[in-house]
Amino acid sequence: MTVLVTGATGTVGRQVVAQLAAAGHPVRALTRDPAKARLPEGVEVARGDLTEPDSVAPALDGVTGLHLITFGGDDGEPLATGPRLVELATRAGVRRVSVLSGFDRGGVEAALADSTLPWAHLQPVEFMANALEWAESARTEGVVRVFGDKPGSVVHEADIAAVAVAVLTTGGLATAGGSEYPITGPEPLSPRQRVAILAEAAGRPIRFEPLTEDQERARLAAMGWPPDYVEFGIQLALDPPAEGAAVTPTVREVTGRPPRTFAQWASEHAAEFRP
């Protein structure tokens, strides 16, 4: 079976492509710019843009598994093209779909729910890879500045991909109407705890420095966030949803092994936190 992976150059998409290829599955990677894809040797790369569904149609030829993301374009806006994408996938004979998004269902999920396609909704909490946002200040100043210190069960991007691969290659995990797979790491960790783990992995002191509300507002505003998004970010840090700190058995139940720890992720990325 050939699997088409959308978002193939993203944090999770690259892992999905690599894991499928390593397991010997024919994989086709969709990207808007194949020249910049830098994907494993032997992976077929196809040009297409999810915001222009008909550009994706040729890449769906002969595909039986489809990994979908739910945003597109340069601005990362939620896709409004779900119905057409689902129509094209159904016409192409796709038999299994994995959808990577948050806990709420959007337009892509609604279109799948109205279709006959078996699909699965992958619902990861915060990615471990988000810690890469701390790398520059950790390297140059030996400090990580964060607003809020609530724990979260951050998940390794390779574990999210492993669940997607299982859905795409194993019968019964994707169902009509949509199976739901909340995906977490093995334990809740606060930003302060993650910084300590990063420091140990990097073999150097890295200090955790909490930001005040005013400092966080200024930081988000400087990034170009509009005022309502700034306030949403503040409240999310102060009172995150309970799902973010819960631990689910999804990775173990779907893949047969425990989820990777943040210490493993930190070891893999330690060089990025050193001068």
Rank of each mutant, 00 (worst) to 15 (best):
G7E: 06
G10E: 05
G13V: 06
R14C: 06
V17R: 00
H25S: 10
P26E: 06
T31L: 08
A35C: 02
K36Q: 12
L39S: 07
V43F: 07
V43H: 09
L50P: 00
E52F: 00
P53N: 06
S55M: 11
S55K: 09
V56Y: 02
A57L: 04
L60D: 02
D61Y: 01
G65V: 03
I69W: 01
T70V: 15
G72N: 14
G73K: 11
G76R: 05
P78Y: 09
L79D: 06
G82N: 03
V86H: 03
A89H: 00
R91F: 00
R95S: 09
V97R: 03
V97G: 02
G102N: 12
F103A: 08
D104W: 12
R105E: 13
V108S: 03
A110E: 14
A111N: 11
L112K: 01
A113L: 06
T116R: 14
A120P: 01
H121S: 14
Q123T: 15
P124E: 05
P124G: 05
A129W: 06
A131L: 13
A131M: 14
E133Q: 14
E133S: 13
W134H: 07
E136L: 15
G142H: 12
V144M: 03
G152E: 02
V154N: 00
E157F: 04
D159S: 08
I160A: 04
A161F: 11
A166E: 13
V167R: 00
V167D: 01
L168D: 00
T169E: 05
S179M: 05
P182N: 12
I183R: 00
T184N: 06
G185F: 03
P186C: 08
L189D: 03
S190I: 08
P191L: 12
Q193A: 15
R194I: 05
V195P: 01
L198N: 00
A199K: 05
A201K: 06
A202P: 01
P205Y: 04
R207S: 09
P210Q: 13
P210V: 14
P210W: 14
L211T: 09
T212K: 12
Q215P: 04
A218R: 15
R219T: 10
A221M: 09
M223D: 08
M223P: 01
Y229S: 08
E231H: 13
Q235T: 11
A237V: 05
P240C: 11
P241L: 11
G244T: 09
P249N: 08
T250R: 06
R260I: 04
T261W: 04
T261F: 04
S267N: 04
E268P: 05
A270K: 12
A271P: 01
E272R: 15
